[in-house]
Nucleic acid binder design. Structure first.
Lengths: 147, 147
DNA sequence: CAATATACGACAAATTTTGACGTATATTGA
DNA sequence: TCAATATACGTCAAAATTTGTCGTATATTG
């Protein structure tokens, strides 16, 4: 535990890919930019990241539902960045793809831990949780991917 | 994922307990301190934390092997704090009880990910990992438990 | 309307965590 | 010395979670 899931890793790979494409396109002359197709299909992404199609496809759907990517149906459809990665934090990514952003299960609303009332560490864990979340909110994906 | 394991939670509960005992004992007059028994058995801790004996017993053994607790065999034996919690970081706790402190499986030495050479996000994940670890190293258990 | 692509429900496989049992070792006190 | 108590630790079963697969519905393009 205390690890990122494969899904989040795949997301990072995909986002790095989109980001690289974005950077390339910025080096082009204005006219060429319109010709360049910026959307990439889930299948292409699966190939380039070596991730299983079904899984990364889900990941892309989630990123799309969160407004980080933009999806297009049909032939020549696919995904493209819809946000500047400077404006997306690691916390947002975790929130999108991990089961929850909380550091412990007992902190989630549907907590079934019958001890919660007599638990001695609710407050400590809540405070630590807050610190961790603020930490992840302070790191942008741009920071993470531009190294 | 991205959560603390039950083991780590149990450890926090136990350490809070030890810490509270420590605080109480400091309120006593010097003479009484010698009379007060500061070691607590795994069984007592299991009862007070409502954790399964076998599990918390293992946790205590680990904390003991890391020098955070001190163990005593035999009748009236048990565990007691052997370090000031100001000197123990959250990172140390995670290192002791989680499978690893790394943010991703691909970072561990016995990594079986066959992509590692062509993986596009090794560097980003390594850097993020470093940040997270430094963050956890900056928080002491004293900070966490005294809220 | 055929080809291509996203969207999503359901479920099987794999992995990891959690907890239980049995046994060995060490210490204390009668 | 021996019985009681407590830590130490190997092994393994149960439970939970993650990861990956299949099938099908919906949307867009030419």
């Amino acid at each position: 535990m205390n690890k990122l899931s494969k899904k989040t890793e795949y997301a990072l790979m995909a986002l790095k890919l989109f980001n690289d494409i974005d950077l390339e396109s910025k080096g082009l002359k204005p006219r060429s930019r319109n010709i360049l197709r910026l959307t990439v299909s889930a299948q292409d992404i699966a190939e380039q990241t070596h991730a299983p199609y079904d899984v990364i496809s889900r990941v892309l759907q989630v990123l799309s539902s969160r407004g980080i990517l933009k999806a297009e149906y049909g032939l020549f459809g696919g995904y493209q960045l819809s946000k500047n990665l400077n404006d997306v934090t690691v916390h947002e990514l975790i929130d999108a793809l991990e089961s929850s952003t909380d550091l412990a299960k007992c902190l989630s609303s549907e907590n079934d831990c019958e001890l919660s009332s007599k638990c001695t560490i609710v407050t400590p864990i809540t405070q630590l949780n807050l610190k961790v979340q603020n930490f992840y909110k302070s790191i942008t994906l741009h920071e993470v991917l531009h190294v």
